[in-house]
C-alpha cells in the first residue's frame, strides 16, 4: 500500500515524463532525414561548420541516436524527472499537514523514504523502457535499423548512474523542504555537471589531458562512449557515482530520523 500511495502522489509527474520523452524522442527520429541532409550539405560547403561527429552521424544511425538522445536530450530529461520523482515523502507531508497521520501508522521513517525512492527508481526505469519503445517504433517508421543491444546498454547505463539524480533530489528536498527552493537548487546542481564539468572535461579530453573531474562527470558516465563494450564502460565513474549515491541516501535517511514533525 505504501508503493500504491507513492505512485498516486507521483503519477502526474510520471505522465508528464512520458509525454516529454515521447515528444523529444519522436522529434529526433522524425528529424533524422532532414538533419542528415543538412549535415551533408554543410560538409559539402567548404565554408560551413565541419564537426567531427557529423560524418559519423550521417553514416551510423546508432551514433545518431546516441548523440542526440543518450548523450544529450533524453539523458537530461530523464535526470530531471528522476529528481522530480524523488521529491515528496514525509517532509512534503509535514507541510501539507498529513505527516502525523502517516507517522501514526506502524511504518518506520526509513521505510517511508525507501519506498518513495523505490517508486522513483521504478518510474525512472519505466520512463527509460518507454524511450526504448519509442525508439523501436519510431525507427521502424522511418525505416532505420539500429542495434537493440546498444540501445539497451545505454539505457541501463543512463538509469544506473542517473539514479544519483534521484538521490540528490531527495536529499535537497529533505534539507530544504520548501518546494521552490529545493527545486531551484536541484536544477542548479544537476545543471552544473552539464554546463561546467562536462564542458571542462570535454575540453581536457580534446587536448589529450586527464582530470579527476572526469570521475564525477556523471553526464558523460550516463551516456558512456557511443559504442559500448565491456572495456569501454566507465567502470570507475560508475563506482564513484554509486558510492556518492549511497552517501546521499544515507544522509537523507539519517537526517530524516532526527526531524521533529
Amino acid at each position: 500500500m505504501l508503493l500504491y500511495k507513492a505512485w498516486i502522489e507521483t503519477r502526474i509527474r510520471f505522465l508528464a515524463g512520458l509525454a516529454t520523452t515521447l515528444i523529444v524522442c519522436s522529434y529526433y527520429l522524425y528529424a533524422h532525414s532532414s538533419l542528415v541532409a543538412m549535415w551533408t550539405h554543410m560538409l559539402q560547403d567548404p565554408k560551413g561548420p565541419h564537426f567531427g561527429w557529423m560524418r559519423l552521424a550521417i553514416s551510423d544511425y546508432n551514433f545518431y541516436l546516441w548523440h542526440y538522445l543518450y548523450d544529450n536530450y533524453l539523458q537530461q530529461i530523464w535526470c530531471l524527472f528522476a529528481a522530480l520523482f524523488a521529491f515528496g515523502g514525509l517532509i512534503r507531508e509535514k507541510q501539507d499537514g498529513t505527516s502525523l497521520f502517516s507517522l501514526g501508522l506502524p511504518v518506520s521513517r526509513r521505510r517511508w523514504l525507501y519506498t518513495r525512492l523505490l517508486v522513483a527508481l521504478l518510474e525512472g526505469c519505466a520512463l527509460a523502457v518507454f524511450s526504448v519503445l519509442v525508439i523501436a517504433i519510431g525507427s521502424a517508421v522511418i525505416h532505420q535499423t539500429y542495434s537493440l543491444s546498444q540501445v539497451l546498454a545505454h539505457t541501463a547505463l543512463m538509469v544506473g548512474i542517473g539514479f544519483f539524480a534521484a538521490a540528490l533530489g531527495n536529499v535537497f528536498y529533505t534539507l530544504f523542504p520548501s518546494n521552490y527552493v529545493s527545486l531551484i537548487l536541484i536544477l542548479a546542481v544537476i545543471s552544473a555537471p552539464y554546463l561546467l564539468i562536462q564542458t571542462y572535461v570535454q575540453h581536457m579530453r580534446s587536448i589529450g589531458r586527464s582530470t579527476w573531474l572526469s570521475y564525477v562527470d556523471f553526464g558523460y558516465a550516463m551516456a558512456g562512449p557511443w559504442h559500448l563494450t565491456w572495456s569501454t564502460v566507465p567502470w570507475i565513474t560508475i563506482l564513484v557515482m554509486t558510492v556518492m549515491t549511497a552517501i546521499l541516501l544515507r544522509t537523507a535517511a539519517v537526517y530524516g530520523d532526527h526531524i521533529d514533525y
Binding site: K5, D96, G97, T98, L100, F101, G104, L105, P106, V107, S108, R109, D257
Partner: peptide, 21 residues
C-alpha cells in the same frame, strides 16, 4: 525507532488537525 514501531502497531492515534491524504 524500532520500539516506536512496535508501539504504533498497538496504538491508534488521531491527530489534532485530522489532516488526511
Amino acid at each position: 525507532e524500532s520500539e516506536s514501531l512496535l508501539i504504533r502497531q498497538r496504538v491508534a492515534y488521531v491527530a489534532e488537525d485530522k489532516r488526511l491524504y
